[in-house]
Amino acid sequence: MLELRLVQGSLLKKVLESVKDLVNDANFDCSATGFSLQAMDSSHVALVALLLRSEGFEHYRCDRNLSMGMNLNNMAKMLKCAGNDDIVTIKADDGGDTVTFMFESPTQDKIADFEMKLMDIDSEHLGIPEAEFQAIVRMPSAEFARICKDLSSIGDTVVISVTKEGVKFSTRGDIGTANIVCRQNTTVDKPEDATVIEMQEPVSLTFALRYMNSFTKATPLSNQVTISLSSELPVVVEYKVAEMGYIRFYLAPKLEE
């Protein structure tokens, strides 16, 4: 038996909106730790890892570890039917082939339940080791989204370079080139407007903008995004999900042949 009650149901709506275009089908894993998902896109170039810790739920009952295969587009369709202020409860029976999403309006005057068929998904679960990064950039998520959108109108790839001058996003295409430099800025009124660059050593990596733009669909989840770079590793683009967890996107770089 599984029963997870999330008062801030809009978080789950936003999570689904941010992953449904990247991944078609995925297993949601439920354990004492929390509600999690790990899945790769169909080209195996990007990976998404979501964790919503059990403490973040108002009520969290998970009698035994459960893996539920879901079509993310269908799940997003159902969650779109929840109001932004609704409380969302996810319910499933052990060994059952459906999951139920229950939506309660804040005043309890409307209660809806949507039952969705589960599916068997044969997915590979990857071990992601804790890593030291050469550079970690924390910046306003809306700024990062704007940069990715702007650059994708010029080119297909972005070179992200971190030096002591700041972080530079560059692209080139048929019509020309573009460079956007963001410098560290911690003298801001609101902490969410800060740009913080922690650099161990300079790093420069190339990525497909199509994926970066897809990751920025998570922008409504968090005012800040963290971009962790190392020449030996995929970039990690992380958005915090309120106080309860994170959604991390991993993207393998493009290398010169």
Partner: peptide, 14 residues
């Protein structure tokens, strides 16, 4: 020309 690496080249299956 750039070669797009795959995630599986970095992380192993559990």
């Amino acid at each position: 020309p750039c070669l797009q690496k795959k995630i599986l080249g970095y992380f192993n299956e559990d």
